[in-house]
């Protein structure tokens, strides 16, 4: 239990204790409130319970909703970072198409950007596991499958061959299709997270 939780528990216990003491005093010694002698104990308990529920539930629900929203915002930001890193790869291919050339340095940069993307996917995985453990497995499996499919398209084919020095129209179009697939998938993950 964290320090904050301990303080809250202590505070609630103190309020209940003091509240109980006050009710006891009012009931027994002080004629400040005159109770109907026919009033049943369970009726008082019922009233107190209703008051407690009426006050605590809205507070707890509000806090839960706000916490949940901030976790989801953080997860969505992680996905946006992945989209942005993959966007840099797309920019290299687009630039290669515009200049009609692609260098070894460009290819090394693409490999490094994939490494960076993997670090971001791993970070998303860790955070998703903490916040939504049961749902995280399927989401991450699908995400990795789509990511590896895109990575394989770019790094398991002609692009990595040293004689590939020009991004032609065909490669450019094919790459745009593959790039759109992974981007669309990442955007659907954002919706999945909002629905959790």
């Amino acid at each position: 239990m964290s320090r904050k939780q301990k303080t809250i528990v202590l505070l609630i216990t103190s309020v209940i204790f003091i509240g109980g003491l006050c009710i006891g005093l009012l009931w027994k010694d002080l004629p400040l409130i005159k109770f109907n002698p026919e009033l049943k104990l369970y009726e008082i308990a019922n009233l107190l319970l209703t008051l407690t529920i009426g006050i605590t539930i809205p507070l707890l629900v509000k806090k839960w909703i706000e916490d949940n929203r901030s976790i989801k915002t953080s997860l969505v930001d992680e996905i946006k970072n992945i989209i942005s890193t993959l966007g840099k790869i797309k920019a290299i291919i687009t630039s290669g198409h515009n200049d009609a050339s692609i260098s070894k340095e460009n290819k090394d940069e693409i490999n490094y950007l994939f490494h960076e993307t993997e670090l971001q996917i791993n970070s998303l995985n860790e955070q998703l596991k903490i916040a939504f453990k049961s749902e995280s497995k399927k989401i991450m499996e699908d995400l990795k499958k789509n990511y590896h499919s895109y990575k394989d398209y770019l790094t398991d084919g002609e692009l990595m061959i040293s004689s590939f020095i020009k991004v032609d129209d065909r490669f450019y179009r094919e790459h745009n299709t593959e790039s759109a697939k992974i981007e669309t998938h990442l955007k659907t993950v954002i919706h999945q997270i909002h629905k959790l």
Binding site: D108, I110, T155, D156
Partner: peptide, 10 residues
Amino acid sequence: VWGYPSSFVS
């Protein structure tokens, strides 16, 4: 390393 192309791993 800079990264591993899928073709290298395979």
